[in-house]
Nucleic acid binder design. Structure first.
Lengths: 118, 118
DNA sequence: CGTGTATAAAACCAATCAGTTATACAACTA
DNA sequence: TAGTTGTATAACTGATTGGTTTTATACACG
């Protein structure tokens, strides 16, 4: 999984407008103006957000006459979720002190793969 | 789940240096200089990255004499994973066209909760 | 053909970011 | 006390972001 892809994906998700656009697209294709409608923001602003989402591969676009329908592309979300998945153990055991957990793991056995080792 | 928290978490994750820091912290506490060592980057730069991670709640710090040991805090990662989880269906069925999938779901029954509806 | 509509592109702006160097501070060490 | 180490802060810089308004493009319709 490319680090630049993760950069772009997480960066794209770090904005509430863009997350709202994705949520909207989850219910089906939409045109730019449809997407822009709910926001107190100009159409070019939304187009810019869409370009960010497109660069991250989260949105693809078709052609219907003068409209440019946007559709959700979920693969980068899967990749991001996959990255987070490596840390699941750290939040599932969060009622313990991490040090305690790590000491346990270390003294128990040597199979100590950790997140980031790919 | 607060949108500002998600903003901060995703923004913090959108940088390879910061993700590497988290990976390093997953194996246990570390001081700032230990964290800075692997990078071709000044110590203040790392301190800034740490501040970003701290603001996102991904890192907490203790005191050991003049050192400020950093520890991983995984809760925001869980929240981010939770947000992504809403989209799991969209990447699991990615071999289909989304429209087709949606049409199926819509015609099948009315329970059409979609991501973003909380 | 001209007009309206959907979208993109350009130019601009203020704010934030990501790095730098230099400096200050705090705590240990001799 | 002075020196050294670990970290933070400040001041600066160039690049990027997120928005604006204005203008251009592409298509459909009458």
């Amino acid at each position: 999984m490319d680090t630049d892809e993760l950069d772009a994906t997480f960066a794209a998700l770090a904005d509430p407008t863009r997350r709202a656009i994705l949520a909207r697209l989850a219910s089906g294709e939409a045109t730019v103006t449809e997407l822009a409608a709910p926001f107190a923001m100009s159409q070019p602003a939304i187009s810019k957000h869409l370009k960010v989402l497109e660069r991250a591969g989260l949105v693809s676009r078709g052609r219907d006459a003068q409209r440019r329908p946007c559709r959700l592309e979920a693969r980068p979300l899967r990749d991001a979720a996959g990255w987070l998945e490596d840390y699941r153990g750290y939040w599932e055991e969060s009622f313990q002190r991490l040090d305690t957990l790590l000491d346990e793991l270390k003294s128990a056995e040597g199979g100590d793969r950790r997140p980031g080792d790919h």
